[in-house]
């Protein structure tokens, strides 16, 4: 069953188009990575799915219903981001204490064990927490709700290295124990790669890729060889990235295709790339790199 179904969803702010014709489906019980560069529209998309903002056109359904102002969707989904707020008049302990009232499947034991592990102060106020501790608390809150659709928007912003690693481990363990749909946005794909089954890559408000991690890794390849040869091998193909290696050799990233077999026989060095680099090249604006700026 589809948990999320988006058909040609658009959302614009005053001058910019945050999302344009977004179409994708998320199936049940998968961890999907929402990847994109700064300003790609990741947060906007998540807010629409959580029912916090309204989309302009197209059709969004979460659990087969429009998420905006929908009680059922709100009860079964949660968006954890750094803008989550809690009343200052309550301590963290009281906040966790009032959660079971709202979330029927709240796991109080998990919450308190994670709370103790990350050494948060029960008597502290939410707004007084440091950036990293706030992110940790929000993460604990999000995981403990056990919502059927759990969304994290840059959950590890502000967390230190150890906390990040622990968070990903906790997420994976809890997911294995209680499978549900998790959508996690990040611009550090390398960090979350080992968690993900699917990747949803968006760029400038459009879906670029929505495939399994393995398919993404094989989507593009890098070819290296003498300039003339590489230009011949990649003729007529879309070049995602090209770099002059030492004045004589060229390093080019192109879409994986059958023609490259011949190039391999002719001595081309062809290598697959890690998923993070695939995503980076597919969303880069210019064919050159940052080095070209300084030429």
């Amino acid at each position: 069953m589809n948990v999320v179904n988006c058909q040609k969803v658009s959302k614009g702010f005053q001058r910019t188009n945050a999302l344009e014709d977004i179409t994708f489906q998320l199936t049940d019980q998968k961890i999907t990575g929402l990847i994109g560069r700064n300003g790609a529209g990741k947060s906007t998309l998540l807010k629409i799915l959580a029912g916090l903002t309204k989309h302009k056109s197209g059709e969004v359904s979460v659990f087969s219903e429009n998420p905006y102002n929908n009680l059922m969707v709100s009860a079964n989904s949660i968006l954890v981001d750094d803008q989550m707020t809690f009343p200052d008049s309550l301590t963290l302990e009281e906040i966790l204490g009032s959660a079971p009232d709202f979330y029927k499947r709240w796991d109080a034991q998990l919450a308190s064990r994670l709370f103790q592990y990350f050494m948060l102060d029960f008597k502290q106020q939410h707004s007084k927490l440091s950036k990293g501790s706030k992110a940790t608390f929000n993460m604990i809150f999000g995981l403990s709700t056990r919502c059927e659709l759990t969304m994290f928007d840059e959950p590890t912003n502000g967390m230190d290295e150890a906390a990040r690693t622990d968070f990903y481990r906790a997420l994976l363990k809890d997911y294995i124990a209680h499978p549900r749909s998790i959508l996690i946005s990040s611009h550090h794909l390398t960090e979350i790669e080992h968690l993900l089954e699917d990747i949803l890559l968006i760029h400038q408000g459009k879906v670029v890729l929505h495939q399994s991690l393995d398919e993404v890794k094989e989507y593009v390849v890098a070819i290296q060889g003498p300039i003339i040869d590489v230009e011949r091998w990649t003729e007529g193909q879309e070049i995602f990235h090209s770099k002059n290696v030492d004045g004589q050799r060229l390093y080019v990233v192109v879409k994986n295709n059958s023609k490259l077999e011949r190039a391999r026989l002719e001595g081309a060095v062809i290598q697959t790339l890690p998923a993070s680099e695939v995503c980076m090249y597919m969303t880069s604006e210019t064919k050159g790199g940052i080095d070209d700026v300084f030429k």
């Binding site: 019980q29 009680l71 059922m72 009860a75 009343p87």
Partner: peptide, 26 residues
């Protein structure tokens, strides 16, 4: 997939309880 169903009434009651607790400082 297990979806929990909350009625408007029960959510409102939970919210009222939560708010009375949170705003008692007033």
């Amino acid at each position: 997939m297990f979806l929990s169903n909350s009625s408007l009434m029960s959510v409102v009651l939970s919210q009222v309880r939560f708010k009375l607790n949170a705003y008692s400082g007033l």
